[in-house]
Nucleic acid binder design. Structure first.
Length: 285
RNA sequence: GGGCAGGUGGCAGAGUGGUCAAUUGCACGACGCUGUAAACGUCGCGACCUUACGGUCUACGGGGGUUCGACUCCCUCCCUGCCCA
């Protein structure tokens, strides 16, 4: 059975660096599972890391403003994985977008129901309450299954109505791979420090990547404000760091539910060797 | 030294006699999320007790006063900003 190695975890833990290292050890190629590194450009803003000899799939595949969904990700990632395997190499999915990784490994039936632009446009005018009533009428059980948070989330309600309206749910394509999940983590304090360092180091280059502040990436708006002279560099850095750290915590919340992840603390000086041994044991069986 | 404007919870900033442990935003904490996921949403956020309903205490610069009752009114002191000297 073919294998897929997965490296996940919050931002700024060195996932890509580790993945590249493992790719060299185990003859692999990377498949990025990051919803922002898909964008062309924005290297500093999204913290891309590149390699001269290891290919990284799914970097730089869309323009800013171009729509892209988890479904698109699954389909392109599957193609990449197939391609890598065909050449006898080990695919290594690496990234911090938990939903993408989950969708890739546990195919989701309704994911293949495409967005209905017209419906979305109509529903966009409705109030939260109207959306709730609409969904409850259309499919009471679907409404019942939603939790208190999602019931108050217009985006979720609209998608639910969209799914229910679409009716038939095609069978998802099952990923036939033996997966190994590796998570990188660190204490909150270390995480914050690493984020701060990273953000500071990339600030200068990031300035050049921000045009109007509307780039769909953390920090873009702040950097734009800085360019406009509205806030100081120090403030911009501090706020960007805060945003990134908040994001890291959301990622940790997400991954905490993923029970099959084997976690490694990046503060442990020997973790590269531990990961290598762990992967080797799985890879050679 | 004189005049004016202010001092409210980690920060910003509402509140101007009771319905205020105090609107709101940020930060912070926890969480949810099966086609926007670095997005989107929910909850909590003085202390203590209670499974909960709820209760007790301490708080709106310090002190004093008026009042049944003050973050809100009065006096005084301290501090900050602006203006005049």
């Amino acid at each position: 059975m073919s294998k897929l190695l997965i490296i996940c975890g919050p931002t700024a833990t060195g996932k890509t660096a580790l993945a590249l290292h493992l790719a060299k050890q185990f003859n692999g190629e990377l498949v990025s599972a990051d919803s922002r590194q898909l964008y062309k450009g924005l290297d500093a803003l999204t913290g891309k890391e590149r390699s001269n000899d290891i290919p990284i799939w799914l970097y730089d595949i869309i323009e800013v403003g171009e729509p892209f969904s988890a479904h698109d990700f699954v389909s392109r990632a599957n193609d990449a994985i197939t391609n890598i395997e065909k050449r006898g190499k080990l695919p290594i999915a690496v990234g911090g977008t938990g939903f993408y990784l989950k969708a890739l490994t546990e195919p989701i039936a309704t994911l293949s129901i495409p967005p209905n632009a017209l419906l979305r446009k109509q529903l966009a005018h409705l109030s939260l309450h109207e959306l709730q009533v609409r969904l409850e009428h259309l499919d009471g059980s679907r409404w019942q299954r939603m939790n208190a948070s999602d019931r108050q989330n217009p985006r979720r309600l609209i998608r639910a109505i969209e799914v229910v309206t679409a009716g038939i749910t095609p069978k998802p394509r099952k990923l036939l791979c033996q997966t190994l999940w590796i998570g990188l983590t660190a204490s909150p304090r270390t995480l914050k420090e690493r984020i701060e360092q990273r953000v500071t180091a990339r600030f200068h280059q990031a300035i050049g990547e921000v045009k109007d502040g509307a780039e769909p990436v953390l920090g873009a708006q702040l950097i734009f404000s800085y360019k406009q002279g509205e806030i100081s560099k120090q403030e911009a850095l501090r706020m960007w760091t805060t945003r990134e750290y908040q994001y890291a915590k959301r990622q940790l919340t997400w991954f905490a539910k993923q029970k099959d992840i084997r976690w490694f603390d990046v503060q442990n000086t020997d973790y590269y060797n531990e990961v290598e041994a762990f992967v080797a044991a799985w890879y050679t069986t």
